[in-house]
Simulated scan of single mutants.
Amino acid sequence: MTLTYEQAQCALQAALSKATELEIAVCVAVCDAGGRLVAFARMDQSNWASIYGCQGKALTAAATRCQSGAIPPTSVVMNRIAELEGQNMIYAKGAVPLLRDGTLLGAVGVGGASADMDEACALAGAAALGCEA
Rank of each mutant, 00 (worst) to 15 (best):
G56R: 01
M117H: 15
P73C: 00
E23T: 15
Q87Y: 11
V76W: 02
L104H: 07
R80P: 04
M89G: 04
I81H: 08
M43C: 10
A25T: 12
T20Q: 15
G106F: 01
E21K: 12
A15P: 06
C54S: 13
R42M: 08
C27W: 01
S50I: 11
E23W: 07
V77Q: 13
L104D: 04
I51V: 15
V110W: 02
A14L: 06
S46M: 09
R100L: 11
I71C: 01
E85A: 14
N47Y: 12
G111N: 11
R36D: 13
V76M: 09
W48F: 14
V76T: 09
G112T: 06
Q45S: 15
I90L: 12
D116I: 01
K18A: 08
V76I: 11
V26L: 08
A33F: 01
L98F: 06
R36K: 15
S75P: 00
V30D: 07
G111M: 02
L104T: 08
A63G: 09
V38F: 06
L99K: 07
T103N: 08
E85Q: 13
V77H: 14
G86N: 04
A49D: 14
R100H: 11
M78E: 13
A49V: 12
D32T: 03
G109N: 02
S75D: 11
C66L: 05
S46A: 15
L105G: 05
L22Q: 10
Y52S: 15
A25L: 07
A29Q: 00
F40C: 06
V108P: 10
V76R: 10
F40D: 01
S17N: 15
R65K: 12
I24N: 08
A70D: 15
M117C: 11
R80H: 14
L104G: 04
K57H: 10
G86R: 00
A14T: 08
E83A: 13
I71G: 00
R80K: 13
P97D: 02
A107S: 05
L16R: 10
K93P: 00
S75C: 05
A14C: 09
Q45F: 14
K93G: 07
D116G: 09
A33P: 00
C66V: 12
G102V: 03
D32R: 04
G106P: 00
M117R: 15
L99A: 03
T64F: 06
R80W: 10
M89S: 00
A82G: 01
G86P: 01
L105E: 00
V77S: 09
E21L: 10
A15C: 10
V76P: 04
G53E: 07
V30C: 11
A15L: 07
G34M: 02
A14V: 09
I71R: 01
G53W: 03
A92M: 14
L105K: 02
R100D: 06
G112Q: 01
M78I: 11
V96H: 04
C27G: 13
L104P: 06
F40H: 09
A15W: 03
L16Y: 05
A62F: 04
V110K: 07
M89R: 00
K93A: 10
A63C: 11
F40W: 04
N79Q: 13
L37D: 10
V28M: 02
C27M: 09
G111D: 04
C31N: 07
G106H: 02
A115K: 09
L98W: 02
P97H: 05
